Structure formats: structure tokens, C-alpha cells
Amino acid sequence: MTIRPHVLEPLEYGNAASFWVEYPSGLVDLTREAHLIAKKEDETVATNGTHPEPPLHSSTQLEIPVDGERVVRCAKSKSAIVIVDMQNFFLHPDLRDHSTGLQCVIPLMNVVPALRTQDVKILWVYVPLTDSRDIHIALFARSNWGLTEHELATIPPSLVRSFMKNNRGGFGSHLPVPFGRLLMRGEFNADLYGPLHQLYLEGKKEGTDVWIHKNRMSGIWGYQTALDLYLQEHGITTLFFAGVNADQCVLGTLVDAYFRGYDCITLQDCIATTSPAGGLENVLYNATNSYGFVTDTIRVEEAIKKQSS
């Protein structure tokens, strides 16, 4: 993959309220906290090859290496990880063979506690809630399926057909015991898979995890979705993405977030798909070259340890 050349002079993108600053060192500052000082038209600045960068404030900011020989600087309080569809329906071996999806579990089990220590929001954009009053404020957002009877009756035909394999089954159909009705709210197949469910419960108890439901391939598909409202109300601008399937629900949420102006960072070892070869590679290619940045949980955890030492 061709690496984007480094900028020769500091460069600011965006507008007065929402902006990034990229430096020749490879640092891309996403915090929206320090504008470049505009030069007058006739002013020249001798830099001797150096370009001063705002100092890193370790207590409120985090720097993470990403692909393309860059380092992104995030504001911790304005960041969240969005974990998509890591549910029994998509991962449980009794329902399907998703070995690459299961390989994402351990990296998530490691990175979620690390991000909690940094006050990064954890949003489980996920649906199996029986009552809207059960939603708990959290530090991670998971976007997951979990339909109500009303939604089952009103979702569009294209979506209904896409979940009917071999012209049968589909949303609300009965799966083998104990999985319940397909992706209906409160059913076992709509719960988080295995140890991830316990991880969520721990965060819920600590007051660090939020569970947000979606009823489309994207968690931010329409006007004022639950996820988009939460992000706006809490001033979140930077999103880390994880989950399955990479080229379907993860990509749908990622692209809609990109369209709305969020900073998008994909965790390569936390996304997977059952699609043929090329599906995952296409997502990663565009996540790096168009939608934002790509890194992995190892680099995130190492960055946290380095700044904490």
C-alpha cells in the first residue's frame, strides 16, 4: 500500500470549530484544541527544518501510532470505542462458523479495560434491552441488533430479505433452543458473545459502559439515531471501531460516522468478516486512505502503558 507523503509544513484541515492539524513529523492532532497561527502573506518563518508542535498533555490526551507512518493525538474525554454486533447470533459456534470473528474476542478483552483507565467512552451499540430505562451511561458504545415487535413490523423489505437465507427464516424467526427468536430484543442470540457479555456487565457495574441499540446495518443510519445523539450530547469526536462483519455493519456505521464528521480509527485486529477474500482488505484499504486511520490493540495498549509510566 502506498504511504501518503508527510506534509512539508504544518497543515490545518477543517474549519474554526472542527479541525485537525498535521505536522511534518507525522503527528496528526485530532483534539481540536490548538489552531495553527496564521502567517501574514508577506511573512516568512525560518524553521531550520523543525516545526514546533503543541506539547502532549498526558492526563487528557493520548497519542497512538497508526498505519502510514503517522501518530494520532486524541482527546480522551472526546473519544469512544464503538463495538458492533459481537453477538451470539454472529459468533456462537452452534449458530455459525466465524473463526476470524472469534479471534477478535481476546484483543477486545484486553483493550477495553485499558481504554477504561483513560476515560475513553465505551459504547456497546447493541440492542437486547427490554426497557429504555435500562440504558446505562458508559465509556464504550456497542452497536448491536435487538429488534422490538414494532420494528419487526416496520423495517424495509430490502433488510428483511437480506436476513432470509435460502428464502426462509429471517428476523423474529425461531432459532434452536436456547437462542430464541432471531435478533429480537432480550433473546439469547442477541446477547453479547461469551466473555464479552461478562465484560459488559463489569463495565455496567462500574458505570463505564453504555448499551445502544440499532435496527439497521449502520448504527448511525438516520436522523437522530440513539448513537449519534449520545455522541453529540457527550461531545465525542473520535471513534475507534471494532466488531463484525467488517464489510457490512461495521463499515456501514464507520462510513456514516465519516460522513457526519467524526474521526474514525479502525482497530485492525478487532474486525472480521465471513465474506470472501477481498472484503476485509477493501475495508482496511479505505479506512486508511479515505475514512481515517487504522491501528491495532497492541499499539493502543503500548501507547497507554508508555504514557502511564
Rank of each mutant, 00 (worst) to 15 (best):
T2D: 13
I3E: 14
P5N: 04
V7F: 02
E12M: 12
E12G: 09
E12H: 00
F19V: 05
E22W: 04
E22S: 11
Y23V: 02
S25D: 09
L27M: 08
R32M: 13
R32Y: 00
R32D: 11
H35P: 13
L36M: 12
I37M: 11
K39C: 13
K39I: 04
K39A: 15
N48I: 04
P52V: 10
P52D: 12
E53T: 02
S58N: 11
S59I: 02
T60Q: 15
V66Y: 04
R70G: 04
V71W: 13
V71A: 09
V71Y: 09
A80F: 03
I83G: 07
F89W: 13
L91C: 08
H92V: 03
D94F: 00
G101I: 00
Q103E: 15
P107W: 03
M109L: 15
V111M: 07
R116I: 03
D119I: 00
V125M: 12
Y126A: 06
Y126T: 10
Y126Q: 10
V127P: 13
V127G: 14
P128Q: 07
L129S: 07
T130M: 10
D131P: 02
D131E: 10
S132G: 01
S132R: 05
I135D: 12
A138R: 14
L139E: 12
F140H: 14
R142G: 13
S143K: 04
N144A: 09
W145Q: 12
L152H: 06
I155Q: 06
S158M: 05
S158F: 09
V160E: 15
R161D: 15
R161M: 12
R161C: 07
S162H: 06
M164E: 14
N166C: 08
R168F: 00
F171I: 06
L175T: 03
L175A: 08
P178I: 04
L183N: 03
G186V: 05
E187H: 06
A190F: 01
D191F: 11
L192E: 03
L196A: 10
H197Q: 15
Q198Y: 02
L199F: 01
L201M: 06
K204E: 04
K204V: 01
K204G: 03
D209V: 08
D209K: 00
H213M: 03
R216L: 06
R216Q: 10
Y223G: 08
Q224G: 07
Y230M: 07
G235H: 14
I236C: 14
I236G: 12
T237H: 15
F241A: 11
F241E: 11
L251R: 13
F259M: 11
G261S: 07
G261C: 05
Y262N: 08
D263I: 02
T266A: 13
L267F: 02
C270E: 09
T274R: 04
P276D: 06
A277N: 02
G278E: 03
N282M: 09
L284H: 02
N289K: 11
S290N: 12
Y291V: 01
V294W: 02
V294L: 08
S309V: 05
